[in-house]
């Protein structure tokens, strides 16, 4: 268990280094971390089990899984919403508690990040290879998007077809009424039969 935690801490450290490296690459952008200075955000991304605390300090972001005391703001959202990076979607779908100004400032900052990784990659690999990698990834994303759309369309058409075969509400109500009526007539018939049996078993009156 301790080993798992040590590895998790190490991965957290690697993620922290990566995030800060990317921020440093965006140094000339108008990314404004000032409203978040000295603030702590607790980020709970589903389906991850534990919250991640983000401490904003100068132009660095510190990531840690433990915190003494409470965070200034807490955000709970889905991984897909988080990766979407759209401020409106995040504000709509994220559950925010604590200091709302801090939470909103964080979401705005997140939406501002436009990292041109292909440009940075080209410094190491050259333009051609960076373009090919970027093109490959874009094609992959496009294929995935198309596949998701196809699945969604197929399911939609299937359900529409099945819906046409299903009885309408009035048909169900009518059928249910007929069942009740049949049940009442069977009860009446049963009572009639019992009365006849009872009459047949009664001895005739002596004259």
């Amino acid at each position: 268990m301790a080993t798992v935690e040590v590895i998790r801490s190490a991965l957290n450290g690697a993620l922290e280094t990566l995030v800060n490296h990317l921020l440093a690459m965006e140094e000339n952008s108008d990314l404004d971390l000032q409203p978040l200075q000295e603030q702590i955000i607790s980020l709970q991304i589903c389906p991850l089990q534990t919250p991640l605390f983000l401490i904003f300090n100068d132009r660095n972001i510190i990531l840690q899984h433990h915190l003494q005391g409470e965070a200034d703001a807490t955000l709970e959202c889905d991984l897909t919403d988080f990766l979407n990076q759209d401020a409106a979607t995040l504000q709509r779908n994220c559950k925010m508690t604590g200091n709302s100004a801090t939470a909103e400032a964080f979401l705005r900052t997140l939406a501002q990040i436009e990292f041109d990784w292909e440009e940075h990659l080209s410094h190491y690999t050259g333009d051609l290879i960076a373009f090919k990698i970027g093109h490959g990834l874009r094609s992959f994303q496009s294929d995935q998007r198309k596949r998701r759309q196809d699945v969604r369309q197929t399911v939609k058409e299937y359900l529409q077809f099945e819906i046409n075969l299903l009885p309408t509400e009035s048909q169900i109500r009518n059928w249910s009424g007929k069942v009740d009526e049949t049940s009442e007539r069977i009860d009446a018939l049963e009572q009639r039969l019992n009365a006849l049996i009872s009459a047949a078993n009664t001895p005739p009156a002596e004259q």
Binding site: V6, I7, S9, A10, E38, H66
Partner: peptide, 17 residues
């Protein structure tokens, strides 16, 4: 480095401490 990183992580230290 991993031992120290885990120690820092568990400290839960925060701004102002």
């Amino acid at each position: 480095r991993l031992w120290k990183r885990h120690t820092i992580e568990l400290s839960g230290v925060r701004p102002g401490n």
